[in-house]
């Protein structure tokens, strides 16, 4: 079981209960208005996307402008998040760091998803022998729980932003693989695939028209749920000094840089961390909402 599988399972179970309660007309719930939490998550995401695309509009102050006289200023009207050891505006740095940070999270998620798709479809499609083999491989990979696989990967290939991103991706791949395999098997055994066979559709057509779309659609949900977690993991690695390194205005790197000043200047680490928390929470909420749409349409 991975974090991802836990999240995916949570996203599923709520929807299913709602559906069980609603009976045949449960689809009506799809059109219900978003709640307060969902609206807040949507606002947060909008803000993050704006920060990623047009940071200079959201935070006009130059994130790289050094002014040693202004170093270590606590949050104030001039510097809402305070300033760092070189007097740079932290709000501006956090906003300008959004793009790279999201990109890292997305990249790691894509790597994990790609690995998961390859392993999962191989297990689900290529017959019993491959399935057995992949399952054993996944069991072995799961024996490196949590960060362990990522850390081991970094030991072999050395620290740095690229390896850290790949490491996070690789360590999430087994979780994706297992979910995808399960989804594939469910779809392959489904009555509608059988119905297509009864109608005389060939294997290839059933695969393209029914199996793949119904297996891959949930990947968007998984990906959304996964991005937030990937950002948290990547930031943790950076914080530990194994990922992005300080000069970059990336959240993890800012954390790593601010780490030494925790007791004197908390705002150096607090605000980048806050943005990570906001991102992770918002993507989780959004992922569940997506899950609901996928389920209730289907």
């Amino acid at each position: 079981m991975s974090d991802l599988e836990v999240s995916a399972r949570l996203a599923r179970s709520g929807v299913e209960r709602r559906r069980a309660r609603g009976g045949p007309g449960g689809g009506r719930a799809a059109r219900r208005l978003p709640g307060a939490g969902e609206s807040a998550a949507a606002l947060v995401l909008l803000f993050l996307i704006a920060s990623a695309l047009v940071p200079q509009v959201v935070a006009p102050v130059d994130p790289l402008a050094i002014s040693p006289l202004e170093a270590f200023r606590p949050p104030s009207a001039a510097h809402p998040f305070g300033t760092d050891e070189s007097g740079r505006d932290i709000f501006s740095r956090v906003v300008h760091g959004t793009g790279p940070s999201l990109l890292l999270g997305i990249a790691a998620t894509l790597i994990g998803l790609a690995g998961g798709v390859v392993l999962g479809t191989a297990a689900g499609m290529l017959g019993r022998v491959v399935d057995f083999g992949v399952n054993r491989l996944l069991e072995v990979l799961f024996a490196f729980p949590g960060l362990l696989l990522a850390l081991f990967f970094i030991v072999i290939f050395g620290p740095g932003i690229v390896t850290a991103t790949i490491a996070v991706g690789v360590s999430t791949a087994p979780g994706y693989a297992r979910i995808i395999r399960g989804q594939l098997l469910t779809v392959r055994r489904s009555a509608y695939v059988e119905a297509a066979t009864v109608l005389g559709r060939g294997r290839w057509r059933v695969l393209v028209r029914h199996i793949l779309p119904n297996t891959l659609a949930p990947l968007f949900v998984l990906g959304t749920l996964g991005v937030g977690q990937a950002i948290v993991w990547a930031a943790s690695l950076s914080y530990l000094g194994l990922g992005a390194v300080p000069p970059a205005a990336e959240w993890g790197a800012m954390l790593a840089a601010g780490r030494t000043y925790i007791s004197t200047a908390w705002w150096l680490t607090f605000f980048p961390g806050l943005f990570i928390v906001l991102t992770a929470t918002a993507t989780t909420v959004l992922g569940r909402r997506l899950q609901q749409r996928v389920r209730e349409q289907g």
Binding site: A235, S236, L255, F270, G273, L274, I276, V277, A280, T281
Partner: peptide, 10 residues
Amino acid sequence: VIAAALPHFW
């Protein structure tokens, strides 16, 4: 949901 999204270091 928020608790589950909190990184340990933060």
